[in-house]
Design a protein around this nucleic acid. Sequence first.
RNA 1: UGGCCCGUAGUUCAAUUGGCAGAACGCCUGGUUUUGAUCCAGGAGGUUGCAGGUUCAAGUCCUGCCGGGCCAGCCA
Length: 563
Amino acid sequence: MDVTNEPSGKKSNFIQDLIDEDLKSSRFNTHVQTRFPPEPNGFLHAGHAKAICLNFGIARGYSGLFNLRFDDTNPVTENSEYVFSIRKDLEWLLGEELESDPLYTSDYFEQLYLWAELLIKDGKAYVDDQGAETISIQRGSFQEVGVDSPFRNRTPEENLLIFREMRSGAFAEGHCVLRAKIAMDHVNMNMRDPVMYRIRNERHFRTGDTWCIYPTYDWAHGQSDALEGVTHSLCTLEFDSHRELYDWFLDQLDIPSERRPYQTEFARLNFTHTVLSKRVLKRLVDDSVVEGWDDPRMPTLSGFRKRGYPASAIRSFCDHIGAAKTNGTHEIELLESFVRSELNQNADRKLAVIRPLKLTITNWPPEHIEMLTAMNNPEDPSAGSREIPFCGSLYIEHNDFMENPEPKYYRLSPGREVRLRYGYYITCNKVLKDEAGNPIELLCTYDPETSGGKSPDGRKVKATIHWVSANHAIEGKVALYERLFAVEHPGSESGDPLDDINQSSKTLLTNAMFEPSIAEATYGDVIQFERLGFFNLDQNDPILFHRTVGLRDEWANIVKRRK
RNA sequence: UGGCCCGUAGUUCAAUUGGCAGAACGCCUGGUUUUGAUCCAGGAGGUUGCAGGUUCAAGUCCUGCCGGGCCAGCCA
């Protein structure tokens, strides 16, 4: 995929500094090329988003090339449904479609096999007939050097013969493996004769039954990079100790220096109150803690999409955090602030009441309905306006009324005057209650002089609250989401992240009241319900809205500080 | 117990490569406001992990400690 574009004026990070040096020293006499190499065995999450934006952004910044490569070397866990969803999520994130089809490591199986034979002929690889457990024991430890396999000194001719038998399916799974012949006393464990091929009598989703031996990550990755022309192979920190092996393999093969890729590691992304491990995410789904991989509480790209996070906000976030080698954890609030600022600019506003409290205007002319004009987006006048019906029978938000107001609470309470957004000033005169003493209806009077929310005498009201006409409201549902995990670093104290689940991470409110124009809402457009937050219409349920993120809430801060 | 990587504000990152330690988010204060939002202005917050050394000058170079992360899959 060609991503020629102007370099972004972003602050640099150590990877860009490194590429700048490479360019200066002409280490590569071609373009810069990066890749994103997911294994098709799971769904993309925020961690992948960082890698995608980094790789794509660098290619774009240097007018280079970027490609998606499915690292499909393990047929037991991988399948084409993941290929489909990964591509979909990636294109959604990037906001554009891939210009060329994705690449696959499995396309290089034959070349990889040929190279493996080359190494065998050079005496640099051998077939080991031992089991996994034996090989593991022989590998030694950090303190002890490993011991040579009894099969280590087979002749190249013998190795070649057996390796070809391996390929032809002569052996059972686990009977033998092909190992690189490096050094069993190497200080780097990855260099103690690593496995290059293992037998798997498993159908591969792309190559079918063509192969029964499959290359390991270490053997496949660098060579695939080289075959594609990747110059900068970016991966996460835990591959640091694999770099030596990555280089060793490339050194053994006749890779022209200008096609020689180099691996650079950066820190993986972490969020507070979140977990970004495929394994734990899978448990959340399997244990029904959430309602699937695309649950709006999940940090997956499909979860973000369902929740209403704009892809552009995720991209901005990734640009902002850049890349470094320091392991750290980002506050989830930072991501949310990017989501808010994006949505604040672009989201249309509507009125909705999610915890309705009946309010009757006692001096409103019976049967009278007035159409009020409301701005669609105060941040963007070109978004226009709409009409909202107003009458004497309304719903307001339950927590916009307090019978005995706390200090600094300046919304509605008995005897107090507030403004109804786009409407009139009203004063609360009487509170009707149920047997338990809970308010069930407010009786108020309005000031006809304050049409449009302006008072001719210039008197001020402290609060403006939202409302919906009870006679015109569309009833629906709203799903509120809190952090999935109750603690900043799930599992750090308890040992198991699932022990730190926030039990009330989802609240479904089923008698929300929306202004009539909500009927025109279309999937994909996140809207702001004024004073409540941003909400995303569900793809299938036309009256269900997922709260993307709340507005910053000063009153909530005041309440919190009091405790 | 070995090797490698990393320590700068609450958090994540900068610091023109040895020259007055900054930004964003968060927090606090004030202003504007028909969203307690947005927007604007300001503020608090630092012994640059610690201790030495080189230098007119060290976050940056050197040495030694301390702390965190990673590595002993036929996962990636």
